[in-house]
Design a protein around this nucleic acid. Structure first.
Lengths: 219, 219
DNA sequence: AAGTTCCGGAACTCCACAGTACCGTATATA
DNA sequence: TATATACGGTACTGTGGAGTTCCGGAACTT
């Protein structure tokens, strides 16, 4: 959510040497603008978004945006790319010793909110992806792939410890929850809640990997 | 694919009485235009689509479109709505006596092509749905709901004949294949093939309903 | 204090597209 | 043949947004 990472990409270098005092640096402007871009993108989609909206949201002048990015398309590309870095910290991922524990451990309000924001951004980009492979690549890396990657890791660990069969098709199974969440949000326009996600784990994913949940246990 | 059904909606009535000779009727123009609208919509999305593109595709004048629909938005609404009627005939749905047989029986090239076309149209609309509830409603009825509805029917029949447990969560399970297909096409931009769909049935859906596939049987 | 740099903001240009108006034509009725 | 209607096509208007230019001011440097 704090897209400071792409800053290295700011070739204009602006006030780079003026970094001695403890003042807020010029460099934060890039992050503010990218944040504003993502907000507007999530609310209105790419075509509905105007540069003026972004400038107003970031309390910046339109000229400031064009001093840093050559076009609307490049700005959006950077903004989407920086969602990747702002991903859930890979440090505090659950490691409970059971597949179900790990999967359920991922269900936390901040994580759900982060996911919904990303999906709203994605919704505003979908129609462009077919004719913009570069954007499609960036969007995939930043928004689509990470969630499935985490699931895949949990499942691989479950295989390694012998909890589930080694020939489980974890490539497909890791996609189930991202796919169902996307479908529910983008297509059916229903919200995501804990109950839906736990149901997905207990009644779809775990049975599919050969694990049974005994009764309706506490979560 | 032949959207003749919405014709009743054409209040202008045009050359309605001139229906005696065996000439192609004026009424087919509506269908041609709606077809062209869907084609352009699938290729460029709503914002990329212009009225001139549709007119050119339908070999019609722009004025002709505006004689029949008051705005671009209404035209698109009608075009999307008429995808519902052009759905797979409910008459020749499979009824093989087993859940797997019914699900696999749905996997046919025309059905896959129809689904991909619908998803391309949907891709071009997604960003509008949040701020256009009427379009969201129509798109859901025409594109999103039907596929899941068929799956749900298959599963209900499986419950009725005692093939699967009566407390199976068919509401969720019926969404799996539509969700995974949408995710794969819209987000990951990979094509749909028979192998993917059969794998989904055998390694996700059937295990989740408590059915096991013995070996890797012929399909 | 003087100079430099980046800023926010406003006022532009340019273009693409929604929607309208009009025209010459083809067809069908009478 | 005369009349009427819908047609395709073209030229128009109006608007909104991308991208540019310019300016006065703020902040930092020396």
């Amino acid at each position: 959510m704090t897209p400071l990472d792409l800053v290295e990409r700011s070739e204009h270098a602006s006030t780079e040497p003026a970094n001695k005092l403890g003042r807020p640096l010029d460099i934060t402007r890039d992050a503010d603008i990218l944040d504003a871009t993502l907000d507007v993108l999530a609310e209105t989609g790419y075509d509905g978004m105007t540069i003026d909206m972004v400038a107003a949201r970031a309390k910046a002048g339109k000229a400031t945006l064009y001093r840093r990015w050559p076009s609307k398309a490049e700005l959006v590309l950077d903004a989407v790319a920086c969602m990747k870095k702002s991903d859930i910290d890979f440090a505090d991922l659950p490691d409970t010793g059971t597949l179900r524990g790990d999967l359920v451990g991922m269900i936390k309000p901040p994580s759900i909110r982060d996911g919904e924001k990303k999906l709203k951004v994605m919704a505003g980009l979908v129609s462009l992806l077919a004719r913009n492979p570069e954007l499609a690549e960036v969007a995939n890396e930043a928004i689509v792939a990470p969630r499935a990657e985490i699931n895949r890791m949990f499942m691989q660990r479950a295989i390694d410890r012998g909890e589930i069969s080694a020939d489980t098709d974890i490539g497909t199974l890791a996609l189930i929850s991202p796919a169902m969440v996307s479908y529910r949000v983008l297509m059916m326009r229903k919200p995501i809640d804990r109950e839906f996600l736990v149901g997905l784990i207990d009644r779809v994913i775990l049975p599919a990997v050969g694990l049974e949940v005994i009764g309706t246990s506490q979560v």
